[in-house]
Design a protein around this nucleic acid. Sequence first.
DNA 1: CTATGGCACGGATT
DNA 2: AATCCGTGCCATAG
Length: 465
Amino acid sequence: MYQTQRQTTRPQITAHLAQTMTLLTKAVEELNEEIEKELAANPALELNEELHCPMCNRIIPRNGFCTYCTKPKSMSADETVVFISLRNDFISRSDNYDEDMQDEQMAVMVEELPAIILRQIASELKIEDRPIAAYLLNQLNEDGLLLINFEELTTYFHVPMERIKKVQNLIQHADPLGVGSSTPQEALLIQVEVLSEQRNIPSAVKEIILNGFSLLIHENYREITKKLKISQDAVKSAVEFIRENLNPFPTRANWGNERQPDSFGKNVYLQPDVFISHLNNDEKNPLMVEIIMPVRGTLQLNPVFKEGMKQAEGNVREEMKEDLEKASLFIKCLQQRNNTMQRLLERMVNSQKKYILHGEKYLKSITRAELAKELGVHESTISRAVANKSVKLPNGEIVPLAKFFERNLNIRAMIHEIINKESKPLSDTQIMEMLKKQGINIARRTVAKYRSMDGVLPAHMRKNK
DNA sequence: CTATGGCACGGATT
DNA sequence: AATCCGTGCCATAG
């Protein structure tokens, strides 16, 4: 149920395109930069352009998978086997640009976006308005926004402003919802408007976008509560909703080529760092976990440098030795980090399999601290590994990895279920009692809180079914 | 009197 | 140290 809801918020075309793009996540990029920096600073470090699979150490083709590790050895029919495969398909930005796929894909986006939109709105577009639509679509900037002067257009086309606005409005309702808006704010409002037809939206969302937009951008939530006289909870759920479902730059986050963070300071959700899917997309097959790795070669100690050190003398020799040690430490750190990520996911996927396959209701609550203990690493290691990463689930939903650690999601999902199932509206107290029967003890106040977090109206305002 | 939302406290988590 | 979370208490609306 939730899946279908989510999917409608992410139009299919964008999902499709996003899949075909080379994905370069922020987390990965940071790591790549880190590597570049170290590489430049330390002569003892060398980059071997051949790609080795970090698991089995076989050489694998650029942009390729390690087929050995990608294929499960024995496929049991019903039991879901989990294994990890790593993918090294990252190209450094400084690489020769014209040969990269990336350029091609950019071109695809730039050329086709207007066409895609035009096709969508064609049936509703009056023939005489076509030139206007075409012009507007060609002026879209890379964020999918329309930063042009409308007054000039009226003289240019010799038509009233109203007509141009009408065309714009058509465009705004096309697939990357909100494209062609003049401001991010406008784009958000369109998205809210459309989404509210399909599902409940926390009540404060619109208000915040309308009247607290600049505060929202600066993450100044306390001011929002004050200025708009909205409760903390309401603001919180609204912001949560906005982050997860709305997108101020209609084309940007969807096929994240942009490096800057979005206006909320985080661009986490739409570019997965980890893919979880069934092998060959067949539900009978085991789950496969792909971790996107920041590798475009294998880091190693530079053998020439090593040789050189042997012959050097005195201070020079000491310095070189230091470099060498640093380099070796760096490599170890990276390996460690990769290793942690791998074990972390292995553990997560195994214990949260039900959630991954059957939805939020089955999410088990695990804290990072527990997991850290289990894996024998420090808590902060887990925290860092989880932060700013997102996962693509088999059903296509992209969620932050942190969601795996949300303690109350399952209960919230159960509340949804109860509310959707019962014919007459249940009060919070009644819901609480129903939960108690299912072995969940929470306070009435808490039920109320979860309810409002998800934008569900109180009992007396819900309608009988 | 019942249902719900606001505020703020204390303990857990990061 | 900072933030998050569940809850209790109280105010308000109906």
